[in-house]
Amino acid sequence: GSLMYASIFGNVSAIIQRLYSGTARYHTQMLRVREFIRFHQIPNPLRQRLEEYFQHAWSYTNGIDMNAVLKGFPECLQADICLHLNRSLLQHCKPFRGATKGCLRALAMKFKTTHAPPGDTLVHAGDLLTALYFISRGSIEILRGDVVVAILGKNDIFGEPLNLYARPGKSNGDVRALTYCDLHKIHRDDLLEVLDMYPEFSDHFWSSLEITFNLRDTNMIPGSPGSTELEGGFSRQRKRKLSFRRRTDKDTEQPGEVSALGPGRAGAGPSSRGRPGGPWGESPSSGPSSPESSEDEGPGRSSSPLRLVPFSSPRPPGEPPGGEPLMEDCEKSSDTCNPLSGAFSGVSNIFSFWGDSRGRQYQELPRCPAPTPSLLNIPLSSPGRRPRGDVESRLDALQRQLNRLETRLSADMATVLQLLQRQMTLVPPAYSAVTTPGPGPTSTSPLLPVSPLPTLTLDSLSQVSQFMACEELPPGAPELPQEGPTRRLSLPGQLGALTSQPLHRHGSDPGS
């Protein structure tokens, strides 16, 4: 009898404990919600809404976190579960008819179910419309201010047509639940991603989709105040780019002037030289400038040598048109050559190039014969006009050509200096018209024969001689050997007369 009593008592207590286990969990969670309300000092109306929603959600799901349970299964099984949970929507909604099984599984994985109690606001006026909503159960109302403009029910759709707008718009009203509602919502990016994977279904979906109420604000059109608020930074940046392009296009129409201050000032006329910023005076940081632009901040801005204009002085008759350009485009679109090309026009420029290279940067340069637009006047290309890779490749080509020119210049200078040193070592320090008596009659020769300089066969020296023939050397430049009979510069000019005159010897006659 005691054994029977113990078994009955144990079973009854276990049954009672299981009955009250759900209630215990409910009270535990309710205590957490109330502690949250007390800690954050939530006001009474919002506090009442929180408690009511918790009670309804507990009775609806029995305190089970559906998302946590669903995430515990593998992905393939999750797709089947989501397809079952959203079967009513996918079967009865017209846009989803005719979709393949794979497309429906992908869509079912992207849908999220939302449960809303009465009085809950789903979308506020001015919120971004980031999702498309399908009503599965219940009814909602749409308000503009305090005026109800629409009441939607089961199988209705609200949001915005995503295929017509590249960016999400703003809501033009509040969406509030009238009863307990079940909503299926899919985010904008998720829907577009699935439709991109199934393009054959995309056309059918957009053609058959009928949005019951379009929440997009109709005033959000390009150029409206609301649109400016939504895309303020983007609009200002776009206007700045367009104004920069218009100014650079105007600059290219004036090829007669070359400016070292950047493309923003290349198009300024002579009357605007004294102004601080020219056409860019209202925004000094709008356009890029070269490193020399920092010198323009000092006094005497109108007389600054940074602004270059072609000189009108005539060229000498024998002067060549100019050196070879550094870039391939210089032959086609440049009416002034790079300062480095002028360094190779003569030997005198070679000796004085490194010492006063900055001073020569603004000297007169030889002109190319074609009066085409200036290379320095070409505006900086924006990322939309020329690819970045093209600019980098041009810079690399320019750097390689500069290296080759520097190597060639160093070799030419070394060769010229070597020839000058050899000339100085071969010439005796001094010569006299009267020579010392020699031991015999073989001493009648006034000077030792001097062998002429070897013929220069280097390509670089031939180019130097060509430049010497075309360029007029300055007075202080050293002379180079030329073709024809060679003669030492330090010898007297009348050596031929010395050989014809008898030598005057000093000596005593033994017979006297």
Rank of each mutant, 00 (worst) to 15 (best):
L132H: 01
Y133V: 05
Y133C: 10
Y133P: 01
F134M: 03
E141V: 05
I142F: 01
R144C: 03
G145H: 06
D146H: 07
V147F: 10
I151L: 04
N155G: 08
D156G: 04
D156S: 05
D156C: 08
F158W: 01
E160S: 03
P161E: 07
N163R: 07
L164S: 09
A166I: 06
S171K: 01
R176S: 03
R176Q: 04
L178Y: 06
L178S: 06
T179F: 02
T179I: 02
K185Y: 08
R188S: 06
D189Y: 04
D190S: 03
D190W: 01
E193A: 13
V194E: 01
H204L: 07
S207W: 03
I211R: 02
F213N: 03
I221H: 09
S224V: 11
S227W: 07
T228A: 09
T228S: 06
E231I: 13
R236A: 11
R238I: 13
K241Q: 13
F244G: 11
K250P: 12
D251L: 12
G256M: 09
G256A: 10
G264P: 10
R265V: 11
G267S: 10
G269I: 10
R273I: 03
R273G: 11
P279H: 15
G287K: 12
S289Q: 15
D296K: 11
G298T: 14
P299E: 07
S304P: 08
R307T: 12
R307N: 01
S312Q: 13
P317N: 10
P320M: 06
P320Q: 15
G322R: 03
E331H: 10
S333K: 15
S341W: 11
A343T: 13
A343Y: 09
A343V: 09
F344A: 12
S348C: 06
N349I: 02
N349V: 02
I350R: 10
I350Y: 14
E364I: 08
L365T: 10
R367K: 12
R367I: 15
C368V: 09
A370N: 12
S374P: 08
L375W: 11
I378L: 06
P379S: 08
S382A: 06
R385P: 13
V391P: 06
E392H: 14
L395P: 05
L398F: 10
R404F: 03
L409M: 09
A411F: 04
A414W: 05
T415R: 13
Q418I: 03
L420Q: 01
R422D: 04
P429Y: 15
G438P: 15
P439D: 08
P449K: 09
P449G: 10
S451Y: 14
S451W: 14
T455Q: 12
T457Y: 06
T457M: 12
D459Y: 05
S462V: 12
V464R: 11
F467G: 10
F467M: 07
M468R: 13
A469T: 13
C470T: 09
G476E: 09
P478Y: 14
P478L: 11
E479Y: 15
E479M: 13
L491V: 09
Q494V: 10
L495I: 08
G496P: 13
L498M: 09
L498T: 08
L498Y: 09
P502Y: 14
H506Y: 08
S508A: 08
D509R: 08
